[in-house]
């Protein structure tokens, strides 16, 4: 599998994702600069890493969605390519419309950085196939704006289509329905606030989320 890790000005988990893929999963990975107008050939998975793309100006992910590379990422996802957005990457995926809803400031108004437990809700996807339904995994979070929000109809639709990937066991940020990560309808796009790329040693099983085969 060939992974592409998109690098925006302000991304700060790009190297973590790259090394998780190459050193731990032993797959090929390339960095993709945000100004590129096309994707490298033969990509299977695109990772939108965490960080503060474009300084989080205006709204988290708001400027990134208009970058040249995102137009290609959107086409790639619409053609069935795998895309995973972590933290700021999740915010970008909701801003650009590949995933529904939006991420808001944590209810506590604090930046929260700690490991916590997630429940795997849907294991019938390429991202979650190595887990059992209801399995509890540990993944760290590190965000100030991770409160997932979606309107009532949107939430019903997420549940009806099995689009909820992970739920927090102890909701840290006020996310609606304890949601920590969601899929698109086709289940080829995953967005999540927790960072599986940081599970290289402790809680190594959580890294499987990035292992798409």
């Amino acid at each position: 599998m060939k992974y592409g890790v998109v690098v925006f000005p302000g991304s700060n988990c790009d190297s973590d994702c790259y090394h998780a893929v190459t050193d731990q999963l032993h797959e090929e990975a390339v960095y993709i600069w945000h100004e590129e107008a096309s994707l490298p050939n033969g990509l299977d998975v695109i990772v939108l890493p965490g960080g503060f793309s474009y300084g989080d100006y205006l709204r988290c992910g708001a400027i990134s969605k208009f970058s040249k590379i995102m137009q290609e990422v959107i086409k790639f996802a619409n053609n069935g390519g795998y895309v995973i957005g972590i933290c700021n990457g999740f915010q970008i995926l909701t801003e650009c419309g590949l995933l529904p809803g939006a991420l808001l400031m944590n209810t506590s108004q604090k930046f929260i950085c700690k490991s916590l437990e997630l429940e795997v809700v849907n294991n019938q996807t390429s991202f979650t196939k190595t887990f059992t339904p209801g399995e509890i995994i540990t993944v760290p979070i590190a965000h100030g704006e991770g409160r997932y929000h979606i309107d009532e109809n949107g939430l019903k639709e997420l549940m009806a289509n099995d689009q909820i990937a992970f739920k927090y066991v102890n909701n840290p940020n006020g996310s609606i329905a304890d949601i920590a990560g969601i899929f698109n309808k086709k289940k080829n796009v995953l967005g999540m606030m927790p960072h599986p790329e940081r599970c290289l040693f402790r809680n190594r099983k959580s890294l499987n989320i990035l292992d798409i085969k």
């Binding site: 808001l104 209810t107 108004q109 006020g174």
Partner: peptide, 13 residues
């Protein structure tokens, strides 16, 4: 502005 049904913790605080 945030929509009326969206919680604004900053305003509340």
């Amino acid at each position: 502005m945030l929509k009326d049904d969206v919680l604004d913790p900053q305003g509340k605080t």
